[in-house]
Design a binder for these strands. Structure first.
Length: 271
DNA sequence: ACGAGTGTTTCACC
DNA sequence: TGGTGAAACACTCG
């Protein structure tokens, strides 16, 4: 489920568990697919090295090391991290494992293998190369206005563009458009300044809320649209449509495809 | 059994 | 050149 809140949660987890320990070994299960450089080069950069800190831009995570090279991680659609000691506790789908000298392991989990691990010399160089915009968590109205300037396409796909608001993923885009009461297919150039301002505030507010709840959806405020998504109602709910109404006006939430992605919205509240 | 999917990149085509 | 839409990637889960 990695959108910005999950990646921020992983970042904090790694900060708390995996810094300042000597790396004794590195294993990557399917390096051709998931490692963006030669496995031997990757091992050489990390053996006897230590993680010293972390950074995050949008959904991209950076692990700084004592000797300079920076590990980059992107979690795709199903990436996660785990920290454990006993080999018997190795989680399913551990695609890359960093073995520390103290016996603990940091694992990169990814059932679907869409995640990527790489190496870079500088976060700034990486940011420029990937054209990542200003992190969505602190995105200002001015920055969002700038990102949307001269864009005529629908607002929702633009929110998913990592050059504009890196960190916003599919459900967050729906959530912020719901909170800002904007229709997902509104052409960006039709947004009034007050609407862009509302949208920027919603992006910051939703992300901060999600991070505070450590990205556990069920703990989100009851006025959030996320509770109307199918996968939130599925577990152990005999009343299948229990939450499928707008928390603001009770109109049934609708689903359609915008920019090829499943999109949930309230046809009454969002204009 | 079948289909959908939280992300990104690539490619064909306007 | 830029936008767009579809496909590809690989796999689980309902």
């Amino acid at each position: 489920m990695p959108e910005l809140p999950e990646v921020e949660t992983y970042r904090r987890f790694i900060e708390e568990t995996s810094l300042h320990q000597t790396i004794a070994e590195v294993e990557v299960q399917d390096p051709k697919r998931q490692l963006q450089l030669d496995l031997d080069d990757f091992r050489r950069a990390l053996l006897r090295n230590q993680f010293t800190g972390t950074q995050r831009i949008g959904k991209q995570l950076f692990l700084l090391t004592a000797q300079g090279p920076i590990v980059t991680m992107h979690f795709g659609m199903t990436g996660d991290v785990a920290y454990y000691r006993d080999a018997a506790d190795t989680p399913r789908f551990a695609r890359a494992i960093f073995f520390f000298e103290n016996g603990f392991k940091l694992a990169f989990l990814d059932s679907r293998k869409f995640g990527r691990i790489g190496l870079t010399q500088s976060v700034d160089a990486f940011r420029l190369q990937k054209k990542l915009g200003p992190d969505a968590l602190t995105l200002s109205t001015e920055e969002l206005t700038q990102g949307l300037a001269k864009k005529k396409s629908a607002i929702k796909p633009l929110l998913l563009d990592q050059r504009i608001a890196p960190g916003v993923g599919n459900w967050i885009a729906d959530e912020v458009l719901f909170q800002a009461q904007l229709e997902p297919e509104r052409p960006a150039h039709t947004l009034q300044p007050a609407e862009v301002d509302r949208l920027a505030s919603a992006i910051r507010e939703v992300l901060a809320t999600a991070i505070a709840a450590e990205a556990v959806y069920r703990d989100f405020p009851s006025h959030y649209l996320i509770h109307a998504r199918e996968w939130d109602t599925a577990p152990a709910s005999p009343v299948k449509d229990a939450h499928l109404h707008c928390p603001r006006c009770q109109t049934p939430i609708q689903k359609k495809y915008v920019g090829g992605r499943a999109t949930y919205f309230c046809p009454n509240c969002q204009v």
